[in-house]
Amino acid sequence: MSTTTPVTTTPPLVAEKPSAAKVAKKRLSSPWASLAAIVLAVLWTLPTFGLLVSSFRPERAIKTTGWWTFFSNPTLTMDNYKGVFGGDGGVNLANFFINSLIICIPSVLIPLSLAALAAYAFAWINFPGKNILFLMVFALQIVPLQVTLIPLLEIYVNIKITGTFWTLWLSHATFALPLAIYLLHNFMREIPAGLIEAARVDGAGHVSIFFKVMLPLLTPALAAFGIFQFLWVWNDLLVALVFAGGGDEVAPITLQLANLSGTRGTAWQLLSAGAFVSIIVPVTVFLLLQRFFVRGLLAGSVKG
C-alpha cells in the first residue's frame, strides 16, 4: 500500500517536437543506451517466450531437448493444449477456467459498487465521526490478508458456506474495500463542489446526485479499479487455497496450476500449456485496457 503517489497521471502533452539535429545528436550519443535497453527487454521476455515455444512442442521433444533447438528442428503440435483441456489427464483446465470467471465477476462488481457508495459518503456528506471512520478504513489497507484467514474460515464454517463460491466472493469483496474506498474517494474529491451544490439547489437528493452527477464522471476511476481488482482476483492463490482448497468445484485456475506444479512438476507439456491458458485472460485484459490499469497503479498502490 502506498498513499498519494506524488506523480501526475498524464504526462505533459506539450513536449515540443525535438528538432532533427537534436534527435541525431541523441542517437549518436546513445547507442549504448539502446543496447542496454534491448538487452533488458530480451532478458525480460526470454523466460516467457521459452515456455510459450515449449507449449507447442511434442512432449518427448520438450523433455529431451531445450526449447531453443525448436528453431533448428521445428515440430508443432496442439496436443499439450488438448491435454490440459481434456478430462482424461486429470487436469481439466476448462472447468477451473470457468470457476475463475465465476469467482471474478462478483468479486469485482460487489466491492466496486459498495466502495462507490461509501466513498461518496466520505467525500460529499458531513456526518459525525467522518474523519475518524475514514482514517480507520484507510489504515485497514495495511492489514495483511494472512492475519484474517483463519478466523474468517471459522466464521464460514459456522454459517455453513465452506466450499462454495460465497466464501471467495465475500472474502475478495471485503479485502478490496479499503483500497477501493480510498481511491474512489480521492477521485470524487476532485470533482468540483459547485457541480454538487448546483444539483442540490435544484432539489436533487444524495441518491440522484450519486447517479446523475458522480457516476458518469467516475467511469475512468471505476474502470481503473475494476481492472486492478480483476487481475488481483484472477491471479490470487492464497485466498483460493484457504477457502476453496478442498474441492475442484470452486477452485480457480491458479490453484490447479499450482497443484500441477507441485504434484507433476516435471510434466512440462502440461505445465507449459496450463500456464499459458491461465495467463491468456489477464494478459488480454491488460493489453486492451493498459491505460486504465496504469492509471490505477499511479493513483494507488499494491494491496494484499
Binding site: A121, F127, G205
Partner: peptide, 29 residues
C-alpha cells in the same frame, strides 16, 4: 437526513470490514 444517508451508504462497508478484517485481525493476534 444527510447523516442517515451517509450511515446507510457506509453500513454494508462497515459491517464487512468489521466482520471480515477487524475482528479476524484481532482474533489472530
Amino acid at each position: 437526513g444527510d447523516r442517515i444517508v451517509a450511515y446507510l451508504y457506509l453500513l454494508p462497508v462497515v459491517l464487512m470490514l468489521g466482520i471480515g478484517l477487524v475482528y479476524p485481525g484481532l482474533r489472530t493476534i
